[in-house]
C-alpha cells in the first residue's frame, strides 16, 4: 500500500477548500439534455450525455465548456427507490441515490485526477438508468441501494448497460435487510447471476494501489470518539467486497457492503473525519476506476 500520496492528495483537497456544495450559482440551461437524441447533429452543443438532466442537475452545478472531450465521467446512477416493490420501502423515499451528491463526486474527481493521469470531467454526472445515454458512460456508481426499487425500464436499461460492457460500483448499504433488497433488485437485472466474494488476490485490489485488507469505512460521525465504524446491528459489522461476473468471467458489478466510501470522499476535508478511512476510501475508489477502465 502507498498511503502517502493519497494522504497528501486528500489533505490538499481539504486545504484548497474544494467544498463544492456551495460554489457560485451558475444559470442552468433548463434543457432536458439527458434525453436529447443520442446522435445529435454536429454543432448542437451541449450534448445530452455528459450532464445531468434538468430534474437531476443542481441549480449551482458548474459545467465544463467542452465536456464531451473528457475521457472519464464519474457517473452516478439515478434510480427509483423506496416503497415500490421488493424489500425497500422505508426511509428517504425516492431520493436515496442522491446521498452525498454532488460533493462526494466532485471531491473524488479532484483526488482521482491528482493521483492518476486520467482525463476526467471535474463535476458530477448523474443519469437515469432508463436513459439510453447511460451506455456512453462505462463506469457507473450507485449507493444506498438498500432502498432501491427499480422499475422495469430501469431494469432493462441497467441490464443492457452491464451486458454491453458497463462496470457498476455499489456502495453504502448496510445489514442483511438492505442486502436482501439489493439482491432482489439485482436478481431482476441479472437473473441467475451469482454474487460472490472477491478474494484479496483479485486484480481489483492491485490495479493501482496494493490493498491488502477490506476495511470498513464509516459514515460521518462514526469511527471517532469511541463510536463504532458500523451503523446498525451485528449484521453491519463486517465489510465485504463482492462481485457479479459475466459468462466470460469478467467482473460486471463490484459491491461494497457494510461500508460507506462515499461519505469518506465527501468528508475528507472534515477534521473530525478520520484521515485513515478517507485515505483508504480514495485508494479503493482509484483502484475501482483504473480496474473498470482496463478490464
Amino acid at each position: 500500500m502507498r498511503p502517502f500520496p493519497t494522504l497528501l492528495a486528500v489533505a490538499a483537497v481539504a486545504a484548497s477548500g474544494v467544498i463544492v456544495a456551495r460554489t457560485a450559482p451558475r444559470p442552468s440551461t433548463g434543457t432536458d439534455v439527458a434525453r436529447a437524441p443520442t446522435t445529435p447533429a454536429l454543432g448542437e452543443v451541449p450534448r445530452g450525455f455528459f450532464a445531468p438532466p434538468s430534474d437531476l442537475r443542481l441549480p449551482d452545478s458548474p459545467q465544463d465548456p467542452l465536456p464531451e472531450v473528457r475521457e472519464f465521467f464519474f457517473t452516478r446512477a439515478a434510480y427509483t427507490s423506496g416503497g415500490r416493490g421488493g424489500w425497500g420501502g422505508f426511509g428517504r423515499r425516492g431520493q436515496s441515490w442522491r446521498t452525498d451528491y454532488p460533493k462526494a463526486d466532485r471531491q473524488f474527481m479532484v483526488v482521482l485526477k491528482r493521483l492518476t493521469n486520467l482525463d476526467g470531467y471535474d463535476y458530477e454526472n448523474a443519469i437515469l438508468l432508463d436513459d439510453p445515454n447511460l451506455r456512453r458512460f462505462p463506469f457507473l456508481y450507485a449507493l444506498e441501494v438498500g432502498y432501491m426499487a427499480l422499475t422495469e425500464p430501469e431494469i432493462e436499461g441497467l441490464r443492457s448497460y452491464l451486458e454491453a460492457g458497463g462496470f457498476l460500483v455499489i456502495d453504502d448499504f448496510w445489514g442483511l435487510q438492505q442486502w436482501r433488497n439489493f439482491q432482489y433488485n439485482m436478481a431482476r437485472v441479472l437473473p441467475g447471476r451469482e454474487i460472490v466474494d472477491l478474494p484479496m488476490d483479485h486484480p481489483l485490489f492491485s490495479a493501482f494501489y496494493d490493498i491488502e485488507e477490506v476495511r470498513q469505512t464509516p459514515a460521518i460521525g462514526r469511527g471517532v470518539g469511541g463510536r463504532p465504524t458500523w451503523e446498525g446491528g451485528e449484521d453491519t459489522r463486517v465489510p465485504m467486497v463482492r462481485g457479479i461476473f459475466d459468462d466470460e468471467g469478467r467482473l460486471m458489478v463490484v459491491i461494497n457492503w457494510n461500508t460507506d466510501l462515499g461519505d469518506a470522499w465527501e468528508h475528507a476535508e472534515n477534521p473530525f473525519y478520520p484521515l485513515e478511512y478517507s485515505t483508504y476510501a480514495y485508494q479503493v475508489g482509484v483502484n475501482m476506476v483504473v480496474y473498470g477502465m482496463s478490464h
Binding site: T116, P138, M293, S294, H295
Partner: peptide, 24 residues
C-alpha cells in the same frame, strides 16, 4: 499513456482470439 476506455474494450474485443495476445 493514460487510463482509457479504448484499452478496456480493445482487450474485451480480442479476449476470445486464441491467436493474438495483447500485453498491456
Amino acid at each position: 499513456g493514460e487510463p482509457r476506455y479504448e484499452l478496456k474494450f480493445l482487450r474485451r474485443a480480442i479476449a476470445d482470439d486464441p491467436n493474438v495476445q495483447v500485453v498491456v
